[in-house]
Design a protein around this nucleic acid. Sequence first.
DNA 1: GGCTAAGCGAGACGGTACGTCAAGTCTTGCA
DNA 2: TGCAAGACTTGACGTACCGTCTCGCTTAGCC
Lengths: 215, 215, 215, 215
Amino acid sequence: MQNSSRTGRPRSAAADAAILEATREALVELGWSKLTLQDVATRAGVAKTTLYRRWAGKNELVVDAVAALFDELELPDRGSLAADIEGVVLQFAAILDRPEAKSGLMAVMTESTRDDALRERIRTSIVARQKRLVLAGRARATARGELPPAADAGEAARTVDLIFDMVAGAVLHRTLVSARPADEEWVRGFTRVLLGGLTAPATRPWPSQKPGGSV
Amino acid sequence: MQNSSRTGRPRSAAADAAILEATREALVELGWSKLTLQDVATRAGVAKTTLYRRWAGKNELVVDAVAALFDELELPDRGSLAADIEGVVLQFAAILDRPEAKSGLMAVMTESTRDDALRERIRTSIVARQKRLVLAGRARATARGELPPAADAGEAARTVDLIFDMVAGAVLHRTLVSARPADEEWVRGFTRVLLGGLTAPATRPWPSQKPGGSV
Amino acid sequence: MQNSSRTGRPRSAAADAAILEATREALVELGWSKLTLQDVATRAGVAKTTLYRRWAGKNELVVDAVAALFDELELPDRGSLAADIEGVVLQFAAILDRPEAKSGLMAVMTESTRDDALRERIRTSIVARQKRLVLAGRARATARGELPPAADAGEAARTVDLIFDMVAGAVLHRTLVSARPADEEWVRGFTRVLLGGLTAPATRPWPSQKPGGSV
Amino acid sequence: MQNSSRTGRPRSAAADAAILEATREALVELGWSKLTLQDVATRAGVAKTTLYRRWAGKNELVVDAVAALFDELELPDRGSLAADIEGVVLQFAAILDRPEAKSGLMAVMTESTRDDALRERIRTSIVARQKRLVLAGRARATARGELPPAADAGEAARTVDLIFDMVAGAVLHRTLVSARPADEEWVRGFTRVLLGGLTAPATRPWPSQKPGGSV
DNA sequence: GGCTAAGCGAGACGGTACGTCAAGTCTTGCA
DNA sequence: TGCAAGACTTGACGTACCGTCTCGCTTAGCC
């Protein structure tokens, strides 16, 4: 990545930022399918060639443009696991409510169903980076005694994945499919179910022993 | 709908079926973005104009083509709420695992972020029709005594919506974003959490007593 | 043509006239290239099928529609050959000045460059029928003593053809290419040259004596 | 015309020639109405878009393609006005006998009946450029004493226009409408009439005095 | 401080798909 | 059986965007 030859004119650093910003702007105004690279280039005051020199195409560009949106997610300590979850879910819902996130994220996810490289790029650029939130929340709750310590690493990883699927999936579905706001009331209900499920004694997920499948 | 004029040559009924089938076939082979209406028309043995006479465009066509896939979802009585949920979630996951469902559903959902008519079409053609499963499962579980009767109609509707968002969302995310199989193990874990949350006494969603109702 | 079987519903006679009139009307408004058979059918209050049952296509229809325009050409006796020619040339120019004649006639002539059947149809329907004017004018002038009698039939035919080419060609070119009016002044000048050439003693066309017959 | 911006990739000069040549070739093989721009593009080894970037449509393209054909007309000194006229008329007839000239020229003339811009383009690209021949022939004949000097500029212009209409019109009509060859015999007859008319003493065109309309 | 390699804006280029339109044929039901 | 209505196949239209390419110009870094 850093091997770019030393000679020649260096790439304009400002261009990158302008392009990503222009991409988000175009996503808001036009949506994914009407967004054209020429339009993005014009908005950014840049030639189309410059764009292609840095990204392979529309998909890659939009992944990068959208990824930045999720970096602002934070997990301040709100005193309880329930409050922490509610807080981050609301933040997540707020981001997903922005048109550029909706259009852009869904579109690249769609394309990724036929493009493994793109899916990997999404997972590393967006999804994996946000798992930190789940991990941080879990650690904090464990320290508080709200959750038992993980029995082993495998179970911990599976639980994190499950939680991530449930949180992100429910908010995505609520916002994009049901097209209704993931507002405070909905988030509170969701959190109760999620947290209730995670802490219900008899139904703790994946007990190491699976005696009779009595579940 | 029934107002089609009496005169003139009637539309070929066979063409509709052939077109929808060809659309699914093309989705499997090409995915959304590479699918062209000319290709669909050729596969269906039909002229492109016939396609445009019946659907406004790619989006509408794919919605209809994909909607049929979900009609095969059923909710056989497996004896317990947990087993019922696991069964239907697995069915849902199996459908979503098909390439035509993945590409097609995600794509029209993406477009629907900028097109209210399309979103409505999706909701009525696909989503609403499957809520019957949640309602049937709830009724059956209530009859079994596994769930308390709904306190009132509003709460019931909200709970149905929440469950639908959680179930469909989690499977979608697992399948499309995490790109890992929603297999039996995952489904079992998911069901435990969901069911635990729904039945956990202290965290029953939206308890009817809420003194200030300020939420 | 007259062999239509006795059984079944007879063809509407009124339809033919309505269709031809509608064709001329459409030619005026739209010109050749924008004229559609569906539009003609609609104007005539007739179904497209009816049209195709009677004409093979646009070309044939327009030939028939335009041919009628030229039937109104007449050659009243104006007292002298020059006056007769001027009169008929002005009439011809007047017809060619109508949009339907311009567009229609030129277009079918264009098509006829690649379609021998169409060219023949034009020649018999339009051109040959108007040669009567040249013949009548020649006979009248010969009777008046303005022109010498034809030496033989071959020469007469050649002269008629030449005059027809010169008259029709000059008016066509003036009207369609030069796009300037073939008005009285122009017609007078043209007639002088034509008539002067035809009667000039030393340059009488095709003098019968031509020793070597090398032509 | 010379304002083409300095930036950007310059247009391929070779493409223009290839396209015009391909257009003439396609005209020969297919005629006007069957000629498609895609076919021309393919023959020229060029994309359809390149065609549309340079010409507004079929009409404009064919005007340019056909115009070049007429540039080869010349007026070598053959010793007498009659011989000069015969020579150039034969040349003109030879060009018009080519299928691409027939189809192309007629077609654009047809379209020009409804399109003033196109007619103007034809007049400037084709017609006006060939009037040089009439002017040169007239000058040469005047120098030889075969024609009297023009009385005034207005009369000269009118005479040139008239001669052009007569020559071009007669050849056009002979070739395209009568569909018979404008061969040497026909040309000699035509030239005799034309020249006889132009030089006949009593019928010199447009004498300044118009006493009694006795013509 | 000039050389040089790369970046850059502009825009032409070969492609591909779009959505529309007209030509000409075929299939209904009514008269 | 003629006819109006209109669905059908076919194929060209003109447009838009893709991703590549060729220009001439700019700009930084190294010699």
